[in-house]
């Protein structure tokens, strides 16, 4: 495991910590898209089906359990917690799950490495992760006052994807015969979705302004 992969995973973990901090400590999920969080829960549920059958390392297994547990915890908080659920911007978070889930599943049936249930679901999770941030980005654009924790959460998620790109470059040059086209192309698409957000995040940060996205 190279440094970029480790930093990518840690950034991903940190993004979850930031989100849980907002939800658990401040008891608010304002500006957070439940649609995106539900899609992430589905991503992890379909990707980590191999958790007990396919052992890579203790590190991988522990991280899988953390991402599964936290993603479902976040969804539970936003849907059912007495205080937190009242801060959810339901009227603004209008993106339809099926508009992302159905095309991703169709694509997973068409383009995959092996036609087995586990492999198709794994591929589906890769495609779905690439676009799962979409409802969140739409919600950010509709939010007038984006708070720091929400802005930092999305920034950390984007940074995690960027670091994974660097990890793949390192692996390509250091591991013989290493290639994973499905993951690479999805990862590039996923990172590209953050480009616009990054531009405004850095611009506002440099000008010492509060983060706002043009609508």
């Amino acid at each position: 495991m190279n440094i970029f992969r480790l930093c990518g995973d840690m950034t991903h973990l940190l993004s979850v910590v930031v989100l849980l901090l907002k939800i658990h400590t401040i008891k608010s999920c304002a500006g957070i898209s439940l649609k995106t969080q539900e899609l992430y829960a589905l991503v992890f549920a379909t990707r980590y089906l191999d958790i007990f059958t396919h052992h890579v390392s203790l590190y991988n297994t522990v991280m899988k359990i953390i991402f599964l547990g936290t993603s479902f915890t976040i969804v539970w908080y936003m849907r059912h917690h007495k205080v937190v659920r009242q801060t959810y911007d339901k009227e603004q978070d209008t993106f339809k799950h099926y508009m992302l889930i159905i095309p991703c599943f169709a694509l997973a049936l068409l383009i995959k490495t092996k036609f087995t249930p586990l492999e198709v679901l794994w591929t589906f999770s890769i495609y779905l992760e690439a676009v799962a941030i979409f409802p969140q980005l739409v919600l950010l654009q509709r939010t007038k006052n984006i708070d720091n924790l929400t802005g930092n959460y999305v920034f950390l998620l984007g940074a995690y994807r960027g670091l994974y790109l660097l990890n793949w470059i390192v692996r390509y040059f250091t591991e013989k015969g290493y290639r994973q086209w499905i993951t690479w192309i999805s990862g590039i698409v996923q990172t590209a979705l953050y480009a616009d957000f990054f531009y405004y995040y850095i611009k506002c940060w440099r000008n010492n302004e509060k983060l706002h996205l043009p609508s």
């Binding site: 995973d9 396919h54 991280m63 991402f67 490495t113 290493y178």
Partner: peptide
């Protein structure tokens, strides 16, 4: 295209 690695990333 054939991917060559087992799924060892998160």
């Amino acid at each position: 295209t054939q991917d060559t690695k087992e799924h060892d990333e998160l």
